[in-house]
Amino acid sequence: MSQLDDVSNDAQPSDNTKLAQTGLISSESKEIILQGLWKNNPGLVQLLGLCPLLAVSSTVINALGLAIATTAVLVLSNWIVSLVRNHVPKEIRIPIFVMIIASLVTCIELLMHAYTYDLYLSLGIFIPLIVTNCAIIGRAEAYASKNTPTLAALDGLMMGLGFSFVLLTLGAVREVLGSGTLFYGAQALFGNLFGDITVHVFTTESTFLFAVLPPGAFVVMGFLIAVKNIMDKKA
């Protein structure tokens, strides 16, 4: 996986002098929000972090668990990388970024182990593998290492939300197609806060295994990207 390939096509928050500062949000923050959620969405446009995206999106709850974990890591890693950016020698910046990300992921993993044990079991190897999610090191290198902490954290949040949005859509489509339910196994994430909130969209004796298996993830992902391209073309 080439984490750094995306640097070139990654739109830097330019000095948007044209866009005047409006209200509470500066034009720069606006651009960051737009980039993360839509224009440069890590899942649909940069196609980063596909491995966890495709692997754990078989149900909405699994997807939500990974989405929260990834977003948290992304915000914190962007923020910390930005804080230390002036003290990091250029030559060894990547190993340092990786160490920061790895420590954060370890924290998240321990937290999930402690508080959402069922989800921890069902996500399995994909929690520690957040370290290798290209979207995270990509943002650290491409954005956080060059910008101020506040903006970097905002960028992390927006990229994380963009990634989560794709993850959840994929999870929802695959869960409905595959087993006809939504939000199955919510207790794994929320405990007994909401109880069983499984929505049965339709009932069937036989699950559509293709949607649950990895090939289905690829096909649904392809359709999502196609839908985004159509929407962009029309706009």
Binding site: S206, F208, L209, F210, L213, P215
Partner: peptide
């Protein structure tokens, strides 16, 4: 193949 991996029983 799609059907075979999706509905192995049928």
């Amino acid at each position: 193949v799609l059907l075979l991996i999706s509905f192995p029983v049928h």
